[in-house]
């Protein structure tokens, strides 16, 4: 087969068709992402910046104190994140305000809500690896986690299965699509303190 034959065959390959609605909606999807990005990047007012810095410093001190006080064995921090011990300590410090605990290359830090309005839902442990930005996140079902430039919602069901759902992003233990497939993700529900004290009856 010569070059023109190969080119003719290639040019004969059709692209899969997308419905008209897809083309109508695609620009809006991009614009929504850009708007969300812009909102996220809005600089806080100077007084807010001061308050945020003070809060961040306080959080850092608390987390540092908790970690120092507990003096976990090497690797123990990971275990303490995974089994919910760090979560429970910080929940006690910030009732209804803790959105997430993140451990990345900068160390451990927290995301707090200004008000005590974080719904009491199932806690979830996530490990996300993409080769350059590896992190562990402890958060709650219904909270948003940032993946690159997009927000992804963490959801867990009654059976303890975790799903990550966002625009062009889906991950579960069985299936992953979109950007999720470029990441190595592990996720599991953290047993709540209540469950630990009183194990569920066997079925």
């Amino acid at each position: 087969m010569n070059e023109p034959d190969v080119d003719t065959l290639l040019r004969g390959a059709r692209l899969p068709q997308r419905p008209d609605e897809y083309w109508d909606e695609f620009p809006s999807r991009v614009i929504r992402r850009l708007q969300a990005e812009k909102r996220g990047a809005t600089r806080p007012r100077p007084w807010r910046l001061g308050v945020s810095l003070a809060a961040a410093a306080a959080c850092g001190l608390v987390v540092g104190f908790v970690i120092w006080h507990r003096r976990p064995a090497p690797g123990g921090i990971q275990d303490a994140l995974r089994d919910g011990r760090v979560l429970r300590e910080l929940q006690a410090q910030y009732p209804g305000r803790l959105r997430a605990i993140i451990q990345d290359e900068k160390g451990m830090h927290t995301q707090l809500s200004d008000l005590a309005d974080v719904a009491a839902s199932d806690p979830v442990w996530l490990e996300i690896r993409d080769g350059s930005d590896d992190r562990v996140v402890v958060t709650f079902s219904g909270q948003l986690v940032r993946f690159g430039s997009r927000d992804v919602m963490v959801l867990s069901d009654l059976g303890g299965q975790v799903m990550l759902v966002g625009d062009g992003f889906f991950w579960s233990h069985q299936v992953s699509t979109g950007l999720a497939r470029t990441l190595q993700i592990r996720a599991e529900q953290i047993p709540s303190a209540q469950n630990q004290r009183k194990p569920a009856p066997p079925f």
Binding site: L15, R18, W23, F26, R33, G168, G178, R181
Partner: peptide, 27 residues
């Protein structure tokens, strides 16, 4: 959008990835 999707599909071979890549390109 159609030109960009055509490129991203030819390069990725997946409609979902083509959409992701096209979104990233416009952003």
């Amino acid at each position: 959008q159609r030109m960009i999707h055509s490129l991203t599909y030819r390069m990725s071979g997946s409609l979902a990835d083509a959409e992701d890549l096209a979104q990233e390109a416009f952003i």
